[in-house]
Design a protein around this nucleic acid. Structure first.
Length: 475
RNA sequence: GUCCCCAUCGUCUAUCGGUCAGGACAUGAGCCUUUCAAGCUCAAGAGGCGGGUUCGAUUCCCGCUGGGGAUGCCA
């Protein structure tokens, strides 16, 4: 058997669509798994909707996910002559014919047919007119056989097909002389020797028509594999309006590429009870045989869990580089690489579902001005804690060494001095004082990150806040 | 309307005639604990309905119901 050749053929939409991303991932994985080649082709036959910029965004999405291709990108817009050549050939052997039916008229006849209980397919008015090139403005239609099965093997859905009588003679060339999608894909897949056409199940119903084209061209069929749709919360096909369909948006929301890829690969494919798949695992294990047949609902919780899973494994330079843009957004300016920040990020790994969340959790380190959470201030910075904070602050100023160990010792001493206070009584007020909120990593680690000067300063501010409330009570 | 497809916990899925129907996420409870997480333990939670076939159906067949997709001079 010829070596595997798969392709990904997106239309340039300005971003990489979630469903397309999965199709790309599966096609890529299938080629890699079988030592084949992966071809990239841009389907830009609809000029109105295509631009180079929109195409670049699609490629960027692919790169971000970690997918690479061996050939291309080829563009259908650059293959017009080839389509024309094929069209001429089809016309010459009478597999196709010119049609001069006008749009409005066509629509009216279709509606009438539908109303009369018909199927609403082309009535074949020009089918036997044998119109020549001089017939004026015209489209070209494929002469689909009147009967017989237009069938094909589908690696996911099994043997599929439709009776030819259910399909009208479809237009394959527009009246402006350009080829339509259904013709272009077939010609491209043939010319590019694609062995496995892997694409979304929304193309499943179009395939019989394409089979008719293959036959008209007297060409062998590739293997088809239609992937069940990914649907949104609504249970319907993903829509730009309702759902987040842009891979770039997931990236911007702080999801890691490996998490998105892992999420996508499991949306429709499985390998026993396994859940964690890196790109390398995917190229090693992926197979069409284990792709399911029903639509999968894209829900975020699993993605979040995966994202946290991969974030937990991130460290050092890699971690820093990936959160950096998000840190700068929170900081509202440039963010320097410091040991304290590195330590904080490390502590935040298992507390963050996304990089965006991680950056948010680092806010108290990124900005000198604290955002105090009123509820936490009310609860923890009460007048009675002022003396505690004062002792702690004083102790910090003379602490010989600013380390978790030394801080722990200081806290123990202050707790003893105040009648054996529980650690929680001390930790929470301090936490609110130095971070502005009730949640953060361990208090000693937090203080170490904040640093002596800022800790002392923030404690001072907290003492003022607590005492101010005492005054308010008295007056 | 017509054609095509799909149907296991809330979600993603395993099962390829015989299982206490398994796992994961989410959910609830507990443990841990200076907060939040993380981690660990436990719990609850599924074969749409009706017919067949079979010694035996979630699994195979048919019908129904439900859902989805396609029906473009879009891809």
């Amino acid at each position: 058997m010829a070596s595997v050749r798969t392709r990904f053929a997106p239309s340039p939409t300005g971003y990489l669509h979630l469903g397309s991303a999965r199709t790309a991932l599966y096609s890529w994985a299938y080629a890699r798994r079988h030592g084949g080649r992966f071809v990239l082709r841009i389907e830009d036959t609809d000029e109105d909707r295509s631009s180079r910029k929109a195409e670049a965004a699609v490629l960027e999405g692919l790169h971000w996910l970690g997918l690479d291709w061996d050939e291309g990108p080829f563009r259908q817009s650059e293959r017009r002559d080839r389509y024309r050549e094929v069209l001429e050939q089809l016309l010459a052997d009478d597999s196709a014919y010119r049609c001069v039916c006008e749009r409005e008229d066509l629509e009216a006849r279709k509606q009438a047919d539908l109303a009369a209980g018909g199927k609403g397919i082309y009535d074949g008015r020009c089918r036997n007119l044998h119109l020549g090139p001089d017939c004026g403005t015209h489209t070209v239609r494929l002469r689909v056989p009147a009967e017989g099965m237009l069938d094909f093997d589908d690696l996911v859905f099994g043997h599929s097909g439709q009776d030819a009588s259910q399909i009208g003679d479809a237009i394959i060339q527009r009246s402006d002389g350009t080829a339509l999608y259904n013709l272009a894909v077939v010609v491209d897949d043939l010319d590019m020797s694609i062995t496995h056409v892997i694409r979304g199940a929304d193309h499943h119903p179009n395939t019989p028509l394409q089979v008719a084209i293959y036959r008209a061209l007297d060409a062998p069929l590739p293997a088809f594999a239609h992937l069940p749709l990914i649907v949104g919360e609504s249970g319907k096909k993903l829509s730009k309006r309702r759902d987040n369909v842009s891979i770039q948006q997931f990236r911007d929301e702080g999801y890691l590429a490996e998490a998105v890829a892992n999420w996508l690969v499991r949306l429709g494919w499985s390998h026993g009870d396994d859940e964690i798949f890196g790109l390398d695992d995917i190229t090693r294990l992926f197979d069409l045989a284990n792709v399911g047949r029903s639509a999968a609902r894209a829900e975020l919780p699993k993605l979040e869990w995966l994202d946290q899973h991969y974030i937990k494994a991130l460290k050092g330079d890699d971690l820093f580089a990936r959160v950096h843009p998000h840190l700068e957004r929170v900081a509202g300016g440039s963010v320097q690489d410091t040991p304290a920040l590195r330590k904080l990020l490390d502590l935040l790994r298992e507390r963050s579902k996304t990089l965006v969340e991680m950056a948010e959790l680092a806010r108290w380190q990124l900005r000198d001005e604290l955002d105090y959470q009123q509820k936490a201030v009310q609860k923890h910075l009460r007048p009675v804690v002022a003396p505690l904070l004062r002792d702690l602050r004083d102790g910090m100023q003379t602490l010989s060494d600013w380390s978790e160990g030394a801080l722990q010792k200081l806290f123990d001493e202050v707790a003893d001095a105040h009648g054996g206070l529980k650690m929680g009584k001390l930790a929470q007020p301090v936490r609110v004082a130095v971070t502005g909120g009730p949640n953060s990593p361990g208090i000693f680690e937090t203080l170490e990150v904040v640093g002596r000067d800022r800790s002392v300063q923030r404690l001072g501010r907290a003492i003022e806040m607590a005492e101010a409330r005492a005054d308010a009570h008295e007056s």
